[in-house]
């Protein structure tokens, strides 16, 4: 089975406290209300930079981070659904954000990855691609891990 092999390969990358899936539903739902912060952005440029920081923090804090349409339990697009299924198949814990609920995040992710479509997946801070590229990547990791055994 690929599962334990892959998990072993990835286990070094994951802080133990981080094993559970994290869904930022509440954050997404309310939007990111910077306007209530004391150091609120003065300009649109500043606001964009702040959102970009959120994305950069996401991909730093989550070994696997997916920006998708819908939430993991209710994906709103076939490709987002596929990506989530692949991650679950390999038992990979991941953080997720729903870009349909936050266009600012959507644009920030696009500018970080320079990739036109969603879902978008980042592993260890590195942009991997969409669902197709994710499938290839995890297959490769599983194969390499098996060889090293």
């Amino acid at each position: 089975m690929a599962k334990p092999v892959l998990l072993k390969a990835l286990s070094g990358l994951l802080p133990p406290t981080h094993y559970n899936r994290i869904i930022f539903a509440s954050v997404c739902h309310n939007g990111i209300e910077y306007s209530t912060l004391p150091n609120r952005p003065e300009s649109h440029e500043e606001f964009e930079a702040t959102v970009k920081n959120v994305v950069e923090k996401d991909i730093k804090d989550n070994s696997v981070m997916i920006y998708m349409k819908g939430v993991p339990d209710i994906p709103r697009c076939g490709f987002s659904s596929l990506a989530v299924r692949v991650l679950k198949l390999y038992d990979v814990p991941f953080g997720a954000r729903n870009i349909l609920e936050n266009p600012e995040i959507k644009n920030a992710v696009k500018s970080v990855s320079n990739w036109p479509t969603f879902p978008q997946i980042f592993i260890k801070g590195e942009f991997i691609g969409g669902s197709g590229e994710l499938k290839e990547k995890l297959k490769d990791v599983a194969v390499t891990a098996k060889k090293e055994e």
Partner: peptide, 10 residues
């Protein structure tokens, strides 16, 4: 690499 190839297509 795969990602670069796909970027070229995009």
């Amino acid at each position: 690499r795969l990602l670069e190839r796909h970027r070229m297509v995009n």
